[in-house]
Nucleic acid binder design. Structure first.
Lengths: 217, 217
DNA sequence: GTTAGTTTGAAACGAATGTTTTAAACGTTC
DNA sequence: GAACGTTTAAAACATTCGTTTCAAACTAAC
């Protein structure tokens, strides 16, 4: 049986958005790949923005649910700052990995979505994300803050951006990501291993000592 | 005296590209801000791609010249791996900072340009950059490789991407970047201080020990 | 079986974009 | 100062995009 139109649009949109971004993907290519009529997008989702947000929710809703549970359980555990940081990022990326279902393109989509939470382009998506998932975001940030003491507010602000940047950018590199997964020369290297290495670097960067500000030049 | 048309287009394009990206900036807004005719872009630069590459070259040419000199001098020095890494990123970011001339928007532009060297969208710019500045890129990568021993090829590949990602993403955050520079609450924090902290995190991430690959789930 | 509501199909609309064209203005050279 | 190549000006062109329209097809309830 043929999948429902809505679902086929979402599937196609997800792939195209992940591969070429939001602005550079036209509704016509989406409906073309989905094998549905062009008008179906505006009928079912109201607008292109609506479609983008629908794609977002289909990924973020299960992600945030899983992450929230993970973080709440983590809050009860008594572990070192280091282990906590590992678990925080492990929780986030493991959830993303689970939802991506081993598909590199879906991880790229995840990275793009998080990126939109920071970027002022696609402002509607930023608003949608922050409004919809603010509690989990807050939980995530506070968990990091808690286990990154010895930083004042501003230092943490920038360190946090740096960490998110590393994560988002690494996972956005669709070319390298898909290449490494399809490569014969790296049989045992897949998405999980890449994520594993990413976590290690993230935590090391998080724990980097704060430098004394001195003149650069 | 009025600046030449070419220069005024480049100035305006630089600002707009840095603020809104390449695809989301139209030639009409550029020529509008520059106070020149629309056709002038295609006349002087051939196409929009040509303009993008011209903007790129005006930033990258002096940058790469300075960086190459810095790296060559660094190769002669006998210092620790740690200090070398600091100097490598210090050299890159200091050059970018010098060319940006204290303007946050120009740093954002720099980040976007580097991003285009990785992203397959704007493929023409990627080709242009890699063709034009390949020697300096190679010099930079090899310098990093040299001072990040204990990593095999694949590990270094991903670590390098992670580092570039952190740098690019942090400097791409134009909103935060300009806000922090204009803020009253942080009188002594400017671009140089942000870059200083970035370098510290970059080096810490570069030196993060390679993890043993184990099963994640 | 008829009817009311929902979904799909094909075409067109209006706006925005990069590019091209044509002519006028400018500047330099002989 | 006349002639010629260069630069600018204004308009139009061709294409693409998101969106809308309206009729046809389908679905489900009575």
């Amino acid at each position: 049986m043929k999948k429902a139109t809505v679902e086929r649009i979402l599937d196609a949109a997800e792939v195209e958005f992940g591969a070429h971004g939001f602005v550079e993907t036209s509704l016509r290519t989406i409906t073309g790949k989905a094998g549905v009529n062009l008008a179906a997008v505006n009928y079912h989702f109201g607008s292109k923005k609506g479609l983008i947000q629908a794609v977002t929710d289909r990924f973020f809703e299960p992600l945030t649910v899983g992450l929230q549970a993970h973080l709440q359980e983590l809050a009860k555990a008594e572990i070192s700052h280091h282990d906590a940081l590992v678990q925080i990022y492990r929780g986030l990326l493991l959830e993303a990995l689970r939802i991506a279902q081993g598909n590199p393109a879906r991880l790229v989509l995840f990275a793009r979505l998080v990126n939109s939470a920071y970027n002022q382009s696609q402002g509607h998506l930023r608003k949608h994300l922050t409004h919809q998932y603010a509690p989990v975001f807050m939980l995530f940030i506070q968990a990091m803050r808690e286990h990154m003491p010895s930083m004042d507010h501003e230092q943490f602000f920038w360190r946090f951006h740096q960490l998110m940047g590393m994560m988002v950018f690494t996972l956005s590199n669709s070319e390298a990501l898909t290449a490494i997964c399809a490569a014969e020369y790296a049989q045992q290297r897949g998405l999980p291993e890449i994520v594993q290495q990413l976590i290690a670097t993230l935590v090391a960067a998080a724990e980097a000592p704060v430098v004394a500000i001195e003149k650069l030049a």
